[in-house]
Design a protein around this nucleic acid. Structure first.
Lengths: 359, 359
DNA sequence: ATTCCGTTTGCATACGTATTCAAATCCGGC
DNA sequence: GCCGGATTTGAATACGTATGCAAACGGAAT
């Protein structure tokens, strides 16, 4: 139709290298296939010719025949929350180490990320990582029957078909409750993430349980939806009421920072003297001295490691059985919340909350 | 179970669909090729069969024959600087709109990103975006002869072979100098990014020029290398000297935030009363009320748009001629620097520095 | 020299799709 | 009912690589 446009140069093929080196195309292929049967002599010849011609194996053609793309699809949202760029970077590192590559899909918030699913499948990716996103049940079913491993990162689902990597969010929420109660607080608030996310549900559940164990049943609620503007609005609402809570647990640091800004600069509230704020994730800004957020850490590197482990296992074994890895974090104590009298320990530079009794 | 290892299920092929629909494989192909010659009747038949069998065109096989992967490689570093995740998200959006996909390579700092180059080329990507990274001259040459467009994002290079998208960093630096001089400051400091990056050079050049125009030739220097720890160290150094500057221009917001933390919380310096800080980028944290960094904005969306435009143009035209797009930013005035008496205008909610005379 | 076994090599084929070309079909106008 | 042009169809081939298989090779033991 359109005359003579878009001419990407052909590129050197293995046959051309073969001819130049005076060997068969098979020999060239074997030269670049680790563990293939080839003499060091012809191998040297091939490598010389390849270098001279500027040959590079065509991964596309290779994929077609091996039925392996060596590509992992990553679907990720909330990139403005620094936790996820950090995850992305670590994922890139670890996948590269396994000689896998990362096809990124962004911008699909917490709802099912079905729109990108077709794209994924068309590229015959070897695995899928869903960070802060999920998949409708029939699609995860489809992955299972297609033999493509799926790992949910920082989310879980009831469905059995897909694996997941999370931390003990419920324990984390409970620990935060213990910490705040031990700190002498008497009234509490919770600013939620997206309400239908498992992470948010579990954190709140644990928090409520922990408070209830000490007789506190009343929790002021706000909806932050993991978004900074929403969290600010929720904070304004919660702080302007007649009896504002003494302590607020915010579902993640990204929002906790926003809440702190609102409290200090819009309401002139001193943190932690007049208000305690606790977050979750232990993300970069939480450590900045302007904030110093007390927060439940998530072991990012271990989580990524587990994710890649699961994928590699399932890819090489061909056995797609849902596996759930649940890791633990620490309550990192900084300056955004009033301290309990006891239970704070100092471990290689970090202050952690480790009370004696495990309730 | 199947005895072998790693059995990804075969997947439905166009031939299977063809057989099921009672047509030829060509017909199936044409059904999924927009603008191909096919009757609506057979098209309907094919679509029905495709749906029933769960057929999805194999992008890998398609690439092999069209010589187009519809994949763009993005090499990106400094993901801990929120500017880049924002870029990434916008890139993802825009590429998806053009039905292209994003193969991400991370972790290659400002030096040439040659290590990943082989990987890129093996996947026969249709284009390459280098954000805060460069390529050695022979490799960019290789791209040119291979007909693969390359765009540098937020960097430039002398070499003609590759395109680039930047902002007027030199003008930006100069404007910041004007702003600070107009604000009555008498002594100045500069905390640099990576020294061999064009962005850093240009910003400093403009800053020095602007100061010199008003007779200031002495600038305290620190090396931040675009890294938070380095910027903190440089700030400590600069602020602990006997005559610390009244105003510091930090090469980007990511570092400016760190410098501000050090000044306020380690040295107890009031900002902006005792020290003015100006950054660059207008990234998320610069807007947070704890910081309120006065900063030169970079028009992120327009930059990304220009980047994708260049790529699409060059891909469809096949004409790889280096193109350099240079956009302009604004000096966004917040609370981290003392204000000049005049020149501040209010434009839909943002305060900008727009002096009358363009020096 | 001959035999035998292990290693290396080349031939042929397969992967799943797009596209060229010629054959087949359609449709309105006579 | 037939013709001509436009549209639609299918057979064949190509894309660049990996791999099963049989043939060729190499060297050591006889």
């Amino acid at each position: 139709m359109d005359g003579g446009v878009g001419a990407k140069k052909p590129g050197v093929t293995s046959s051309q290298v073969a001819e130049h080196a005076g060997v068969s195309q098979s020999a060239v292929s074997r030269t670049f296939t680790p563990g293939a049967s080839i003499s060091s002599k012809t191998r040297a010849k091939v490598l010389a010719s390849a270098k001279e011609l500027g040959y590079r194996p065509n991964a596309i053609a290779r994929s077609l025949i091996t039925n392996r793309s060596r590509i992992i699809a990553v679907v990720m949202a909330y990139l403005e929350n620094l936790f996820y760029p950090d995850v992305l970077e670590e994922l890139g590192r670890r996948l590269a180490a396994e000689d896998y590559h990362l096809l990124l899909f962004t911008g699909f918030m917490d709802r099912d990320s079905d729109p990108v699913f077709d794209q994924l499948m068309q590229y015959r990716v070897d695995g899928i990582i869903l960070a802060s996103t999920s998949l409708s049940s029939d699609l995860s079913e489809e992955c299972a029957t297609a033999g493509i491993p799926v790992v949910l990162f920082n989310r879980t689902t009831q469905r059995d078909a897909v694996s997941s990597v999370t931390t003990r969010n419920r324990d984390g929420g409970r620990k935060i409750a213990e910490f705040l109660v031990a700190g002498g607080h008497k009234s509490f608030g919770y600013i939620a993430g997206l309400e239908n996310s498992s992470t948010n549900r579990d954190r709140f559940l644990g928090f409520a349980e922990g408070l209830q164990a000490h007789g506190f049943t009343d929790i002021a609620l706000g909806k932050g939806n993991y978004s900074r503007p929403d969290a600010e609005a929720a904070a304004r609402d919660m702080l302007s009421g007649p009896d504002r809570p003494e302590a607020i647990f915010v579902a993640n640091d990204h929002m906790a920072v926003a809440v702190m800004d609102v409290a200090r600069h819009e309401f002139g509230i001193a943190v932690p003297e007049q208000l305690s704020i606790v977050g979750y994730d232990d993300v970069g800004p939480a450590r900045w001295t302007s904030y110093g957020i007390t927060t439940m850490s998530q072991p990012l590197k271990k989580m990524v490691e587990a994710t890649v482990d699961i994928l590699m296992d399932q890819i090489t074994s061909g056995d797609i059985e849902a596996e759930h890895r649940i890791l633990s974090g620490e309550l990192v104590v900084r300056t955004s919340a009033r301290l309990p009298r006891t239970g704070i320990v100092d471990i290689d530079g970090r202050k952690l909350y480790r009370p004696k009794d495990t309730a």
